[in-house]
């Protein structure tokens, strides 16, 4: 299998789906002539032209709403947000229109839209550009939320998201764009709602999504090398729908869990997971569920402090040692 970057995997997924379905349109700021602010759409405009790859002005509320309206008539827009942080100026369109139109119309209207872009901190750009809003959007029934951690998952999940008839919030990570993983050349799809055990272990379950999965894998290596602890790493991949069974099966095996996310702790994704685990596997737990999240302040600019604000492998290791 070829080693390709997370960025290229997304690019390939877009190109394949554009070729497959004439209704797929990629739109957003700088996606066409500029080749993408983070080069995810590089080369697509040259290959597919202005009808399929559409540059739009800085009007997230307007163009996200436009994409929602177009999707109601069967166009399948894949809208790039340069940062998911910018979704906040389009909040009404995402929550009230994309998220509620199917329900409020009694199921008469579909909204097959994908909104994608990076949703991460850790790049020295301060609080306004470092938001991780997966918990906000996952809190909205009607929306789906996906956060892949590898190139393989990114490609398979994006293709699934584009074919899905519901609005999918697809959250990427700029720190992963250049990282490479093995990706098959043959076409494949990854369903939403299916977690992936990224590392098998017997002593503790680490649950994460997005780049926190990579942090957990690093922590698991340290734990094995330094402490002889075998951590299992469960990658959610999809947050809503959520694969509760894979999480619970792992907890039943290891009897301990530490939940890791780059989100803030209060009302974070892992708050939901912790409630779910204690309710459904209380008797399986030999220790309280631990949580490692971003430190609970707006994202700090100062580079050395920003590094420790996000979960680090060392912080995960310490929490595991306190739990085991």
């Amino acid at each position: 299998m070829a080693l390709i970057s997370y960025r290229k995997a997304l690019n390939d997924a877009l190109a394949e789906e554009i070729l497959r379905d004439e209704n797929v349109v990629v739109m957003g700021e700088e996606v066409a002539e500029y080749n993408g602010a983070y080069k995810v759409t590089e080369g697509l405009w040259g290959r597919f032209g202005s009808k399929r790859i559409v540059d739009l002005p800085i009007s997230e509320g307007g163009f996200v709403g436009m994409a929602v309206g177009a999707s109601m008539l069967g166009v399948r827009p894949v809208v790039e947000l340069m940062f998911w942080s910018f979704a906040y100026v389009a909040f009404d369109q995402i929550i009230n229109n994309a998220g509620c139109v199917r329900y409020m119309s009694g199921g008469q209207i579909n909204c097959p839209i994908v909104i994608r872009g990076p949703a991460n901190g850790g790049t020295n750009v301060g609080a306004t550009h470092s938001h991780t809003p997966e918990n906000l959007f996952a809190a909205m029934p009607g929306l789906k939320v996906v956060a892949p951690a590898t190139a393989y998952d990114a490609k398979g999940l994006l293709k699934t998201a584009i074919r899905d008839n519901d609005p999918v919030m697809f959250m990427e990570n700029t720190l992963l764009y250049g990282e490479k993983w093995e990706v098959p050349e043959d076409e494949y799809l990854i369903p939403m709602g299916v977690a992936d055990v990224k590392r098998v272990g017997s002593d503790i379950t680490l649950v994460a999504h997005g780049r926190a999965v990579i942090t957990c894998l690093e922590a698991a290596q340290i734990l094995e090398a330094e402490n002889g602890i075998h951590a299992e790493v469960v990658d959610l991949r999809s947050i809503r729908p959520l694969d509760e069974e894979t999480i619970l099966a792992s907890v039943r095996k290891t009897h301990r869990a530490v939940l890791v996310e780059e989100n803030k702790p209060f009302c974070g994704v892992d708050a939901q997971l912790a409630a779910m685990i204690q309710e459904k596997a209380f008797d399986e737990l030999d220790a309280p569920i631990g949580r490692i999240s971003a430190l609970d302040a707006p994202a700090i600019y100062s580079p050395p402090l920003e590094k420790i604000q996000l979960p680090t492998a060392r912080r995960v290791v310490q929490k595991v040692l306190a739990t085991c």
């Binding site: 163009f63 996200v64 709403g65 436009m66 309206g69 999707s71 109601m72 008539l73 166009v75």
Partner: peptide, 8 residues
């Protein structure tokens, strides 16, 4: 913007 999208 929904009307805009329908027109789109």
């Amino acid at each position: 913007p929904l009307g805009l999208g329908i027109a789109y």
